[in-house]
């Protein structure tokens, strides 16, 4: 690898030397920044601007000059509901079904995830043997690809799968998990928690280990009960990390697509269709391609995400400043 990189770097050296002579070393900084700014400009900032053009134009053409201006019609269509609590009363009922699913998904997923990663982190923070091994075990699924995670669980949950065999063995009623809307949704939440839990465990564990030891020693001197130590020392001192975990998992929860889509395809029916899948289906999978609707929906998602990210940045900055 190195033998390949060195000549490449030497080749780039000639034009860079010439540029340095023309611009001077200070302005050369922009040359170093250029490739990065080019990529950010074209593939992040320009899309953000164009997104508004798509959201305010109609038809299924991809080229902007072919798309007639429709104002806020796409947003109006998305928001046209008699009652936001009942997706059936909405013009684009699938969007609201996806919103409802996503909200439920986030509440359950974030709740279970915070609970289980907290429990795991607290246990891993005890004086236990083979801590490195156990930590690696809980972290391991984080590295798998979403599609692999989905298939691993699909194989267990299929009609003739291992779980039904175990239920059968104990004389319990088997269930065709993937065909029941409620179960498919519940398992989607479960595999998502299984998949991402290790990541948050790791962050919480780091938070726990950064709590100074002498605070605990002082509590031991005062013969404080373990429960009291947890409530009065561990929990308050872990709060900043907890908030980071909460916000991060919310941000990622809103964007969940991969593992659920590979697991259920959004079905049965639309029981597990989440908002990002709605965007994907309208923009890229369905047969009139409703780019405007997809863009409008993604702008609504972006507003939620930007608010959450702003909170996250504010918290990290506050934590960093002590």
């Amino acid at each position: 690898m190195l033998s390949l990189i060195t000549p490449l770097m030497q080749i780039i050296e000639w034009p860079m030397r010439a540029l340095q002579r023309i611009l001077g070393p200070r302005k050369l900084a922009w040359v170093f920044l250029l490739p990065n700014l080019f990529l950010f400009g074209f593939f992040t900032f320009l899309p953000v601007i164009l997104n508004f053009f798509y959201a305010t134009t109609g038809s299924d053409h991809i080229l902007l000059e072919d798309r007639p201006y429709v104002g806020m019609r796409n947003f109006d269509e998305l928001m046209n509901c008699t009652s936001y609590l009942d997706p059936n009363s909405c013009q684009i009922d699938l969007f609201w079904r996806a919103v409802h699913n996503t909200l439920w998904f986030i509440v359950l997923q974030v709740g279970f995830m915070v609970f289980f990663s907290m429990t795991t982190a607290l246990i891993l923070n005890r004086k236990i043997r083979a801590r490195g091994f156990f930590r690696a075990v809980f972290f391991f699924p984080v590295l798998l690809s979403p599609v692999v995670v989905a298939l691993v669980w699909k194989w267990i949950l299929q009609d003739q799968g291992a779980l039904n065999a175990v239920l059968d063995h104990f004389g319990l009623q088997t269930v065709n998990w993937m065909l029941s809307p409620t179960w498919a949704f519940a398992w989607s939440v479960f595999i998502s928690v299984w998949f991402h839990m290790g990541f948050y465990t790791l962050i919480l564990l780091a938070g726990l280990q950064s709590i100074p030891r002498d605070v605990y020693e002082a509590a031991a001197m005062d013969a404080a009960s373990p429960w009291r130590v947890f409530r009065k020392i561990t929990l308050p001192l872990l709060m900043p990390t907890m908030v980071v975990v909460l916000v991060l998992s919310l941000i990622k929860g809103v964007q969940t697509f991969d593992e659920v889509y590979a697991f259920t395809g959004g079905g049965p029916g639309s029981a597990t269709t989440l908002v990002i899948q709605f965007i994907y289906q309208n923009g890229f999978a369905g047969a009139p391609r409703l780019f405007g609707l997809a863009s409008a929906a993604s702008i609504l998602v972006a507003i939620v995400l930007i608010a959450l990210t702003a909170v996250q940045l504010w918290i990290t900055r506050r934590n960093a400043n002590g």
């Binding site: 593939f43 992040t44 320009l46 899309p47 953000v48 601007i49 164009l50 997104n51 053009f53 798509y54 991809i62 964007q255 697509f257 990002i276 965007i279 994907y280 923009g283 890229f284 780019f291 997809a294 863009s295 993604s298 702008i299 998602v301 972006a302 995400l305």
Partner: peptide
């Protein structure tokens, strides 16, 4: 995830 259409 929120700029898929224009990115395309």
């Amino acid at each position: 995830t929120v700029v898929l259409v224009p990115l395309f």
